[in-house]
């Protein structure tokens, strides 16, 4: 989709000749890749790769929005490739102590009859769009994401950020689908708990 207004004039070399455009994109790309890969050096490499690919292929983009979307698609593919390459050397089945800690924290939310204990009942977060519009929310959100243990985070990001199917995650990481669902559930609960504590309790009083 193209937006009017800030369309970059397309010369014979295409929009990419606007150097500032790529420079403006780079910090966000780096932050993204770091969050996903948890490896600063690899993140730099992947972003560099994505920028090179973008420069080589950028012809015929008539607008900034279309160009940004396209560069992001390249970056996501590069990150996915890096994860696929790396995943084989990782023993995902080993449960790290932090991951066990998340399970214990989850169990502690419930009474013996497996219903929420009064102090752990999930609260009404109100209209999420209100939060998504605030810069401060995104700082908290990223901090909560970074808080997830490494393996938990990797699988969660593959599912929610790169939008892999669970079957593909299972295949790439050689884990059972049952295990995959357990890890995703663990990740979501941890993220939920972190957001409720760090944002919805402090930032937004909903009741």
């Amino acid at each position: 989709m193209q937006r009017g207004g800030n369309a970059v004039t397309e010369g014979q070399d295409g929009v990419i000749m606007d150097d500032g455009l790529l420079r403006a994109l780079r910090p966000g790309m780096i932050r993204f890749a770091r969050l996903q890969l948890r490896d600063d050096e690899l993140a730099e490499d992947v972003v560099q790769d994505a920028l090179m690919a973008a420069m080589a292929g950028a012809k015929g983009f008539a607008g900034r929005a279309a160009f940004n979307t396209w560069v992001l698609a390249i970056l996501r593919n590069k990150i996915a490739d890096a994860i696929r390459l790396r995943s084989r050397s990782i023993n995902i089945s080993a449960l790290a102590p932090e991951e066990e800690g998340l399970d214990q924290a989850f169990e502690a939310l419930f009474k013996p009859n497996a219903h929420w204990s009064p102090q752990s009942r999930p609260r009404d977060w109100g209209d999420p769009e209100d939060s998504l519009q605030r810069d401060q929310f995104w700082i908290v959100f990223e901090a909560c994401l970074k808080h997830l243990p490494e393996n938990t985070s990797r699988i969660f990001m593959m599912r929610e950020f790169l939008e892999f199917d669970t079957s593909e995650i299972c295949k790439e990481l050689a884990i059972s689908s049952g295990n995959c669902h357990v890890i995703l559930h663990r990740a979501r609960n941890a993220l939920r708990g972190c957001l409720e504590q760090s944002w919805f309790d402090k930032g937004e009083q909903t009741c």
Binding site: P128, S131, E160, F161, R192
Partner: peptide, 19 residues
């Protein structure tokens, strides 16, 4: 859960400006 998915989708689609 829906709110978190919405946030992740938003994050995944705006590289230069998460908010």
């Amino acid at each position: 859960m829906n709110a978190m998915r919405a946030a992740m989708r938003r994050l995944a689609r705006s590289p230069d400006d998460p908010p």
